[in-house]
Structures are given as structure tokens and as C-alpha cells.
């Protein structure tokens, strides 16, 4: 084990009444991740420091925060990649309302998840479903999602524009729509819903969701853009469009 060294952790502490950054000097051993250090602060300096976490192995997606301004899983962020010379800032995800310290109210995501029309399987043949590996690989990528909500957090559509939340599903949910739309057994069609109520058009494909994804899911390239293209199939074929225009409908969001 390498020699423990001391770093300064600058952690946001507070609740709905407000708060600010607090410095904690703490020992760090080699191989440790940010979450280890947060736990050490809990055990030795601040027992009520609120941190959400579960598996500590990058598989449950609970411990999301912003480390030196970058949205990350604290359990997968090794201390060795951070510059110990300066205080290391750990802040809660900014897109969601604060509960306390590093814990935010992520219920927006669960609400949006409830609005996803569920899987609607095609009728089952007598000898059971048959699917082949090539049919499911594309969707399996999306199923890697651990719902850490870092993509939702980093997306400027809601990060910087709170007012968009009611009509924007967010990258996490777009993956979910994509997995349903591309599911070999699903018979639903969610394209109108996506464009009209879920704010697919609000996404300007600036790809921050893909950049922060700890599971390395190509959210923009493999889910959002293909969904946009599927919507184009349905809504923006210029010939269909022209017909609609003649009937007096204006372009833009349909509601």
C-alpha cells in the first residue's frame, strides 16, 4: 500500500435552506476512489454528511456527483486522477433539487419513467419467441444503463432551463424509448409522443450525455439520433409536410 497522503476535499454541505462548500483535510491511500474518501470523512469528521451510494462497484448508479465540476460516479473516480495540490471539489448534481449535501431529489427521472408507454409484445408463437443475437445487440447496449442520471444532470436542456423539465424526457429516457422502439418483439409506436410531448426536438445533440456516461453508452449516436430519424420518417417527409401545410397546419411543435 502506498503511503497515505493528505488532500483537501471541498464538499458542498447544506440543504434546502442553502449551503456552501466546506473544506475537509483527509488522508488518502493508494487505489482509493472519491467515495472511499467521502466515507472516511463520514466516519471521522462529519457523521451526518449525506451521500447516496450502494454497490461501490459502478453497477448501481447511486453515487453520482460533480467532482471538480465534472459529473461522475464517485465510486469509479480514482483519487489518483485528481490533482492533490488543489482542493478537490465535490458538489451535488445541479440539475436536481437539493435534499442535503450530496444527495439530490431525483424524482423527476422516476416521473418521466412512469410516462414511458410500456413494452407491448407481439403475439407469442406457439413454440415461443425466437430472437437472434444480431437482433438484440443494439438494444442490449441501452440496457447497460445503470440509471445514475448523470446524463440527465449534464443535459443543458434541463440543467440550464428548469422550465423545460415538464416536457423533456431527457437522455436516460430517450435510451429507454430507443430500446422499446428497436426491441425486436415490441409492437408499439412512440414516435408522436416522443416528438410532441417528450421533447425529442429539444435535444440539440451536443453529446454531453454521451461524454459523461459511465457505461459508455453512445446515447446520442445510437439512441437519440436514430430516434430523430425515425420521427423524420413519420413527420418530416417533405411531401407529407407539404400536404399538411396546405391543410393549414403550421410547422413547429404540434401542440
Amino acid at each position: 500500500m502506498g503511503d497515505p497522503s493528505t488532500v483537501t476535499m471541498r464538499i458542498w454541505r447544506g440543504d434546502t435552506n442553502g449551503g456552501g462548500f466546506e473544506d475537509h483535510d483527509v488522508e488518502v491511500s493508494s487505489g482509493e476512489v472519491v467515495l472511499d474518501v467521502l466515507h472516511r470523512i463520514q466516519a471521522t469528521q462529519a457523521p451526518d454528511l449525506a451521500v447516496r451510494w450502494n454497490c461501490k462497484a459502478g453497477r448501481c448508479g447511486s453515487c453520482s456527483a460533480e467532482v471538480n465540476g465534472v459529473p461522475r460516479l464517485t465510486c469509479m473516480t480514482r483519487m489518483s486522477i485528481l490533482d492533490p495540490a488543489e482542493p478537490i471539489t465535490v458538489a451535488p448534481m445541479r440539475t436536481f433539487p437539493i435534499i442535503k449535501d450530496l444527495v439530490t431529489d431525483v424524482s423527476y427521472n422516476y416521473e418521466m419513467s412512469k410516462r414511458v408507454p410500456p413494452f407491448r409484445p407481439k403475439p407469442k408463437p406457439p413454440d415461443g419467441h425466437r430472437m437472434f443475437q444480431e437482433d438484440i445487440e443494439r438494444v442490449q447496449e441501452f440496457r447497460k444503463c445503470i440509471e445514475c442520471f448523470l446524463c440527465q444532470n449534464v443535459c443543458h436542456v434541463i440543467r440550464d432551463h428548469e422550465e423545460n423539465k415538464p416536457h423533456f424526457a431527457g437522455p436516460r429516457m430517450f435510451i429507454r424509448y430507443a430500446e422499446l422502439e428497436m426491441h425486436p418483439l415490441d409492437s408499439g409506436d412512440r414516435r408522436d409522443l416522443l416528438q410532441e410531448e417528450m421533447g425529442l426536438g429539444l435535444c440539440n445533440i451536443t453529446k454531453c450525455c454521451s461524454e459523461v456516461c459511465p457505461e459508455d453508452i453512445h446515447i446520442t449516436d445510437n439512441a437519440i439520433i436514430p430516434l430523430k430519424e425515425r420521427v423524420v420518417d413519420r413527420k418530416y417527409d417533405p411531401i407529407v409536410w407539404l400536404g399538411k401545410a396546405i391543410k393549414g397546419r403550421r410547422s413547429g411543435r404540434a401542440e
Partner: peptide, 9 residues
């Protein structure tokens, strides 16, 4: 140790 800077998240 507690050097709070005013910022509400």
C-alpha cells in the same frame, strides 16, 4: 475548517 462560500445548488 469550515470555509463556506455562498452558493446554493
Amino acid at each position: 475548517m469550515n470555509t463556506k462560500t455562498a452558493e446554493n445548488r
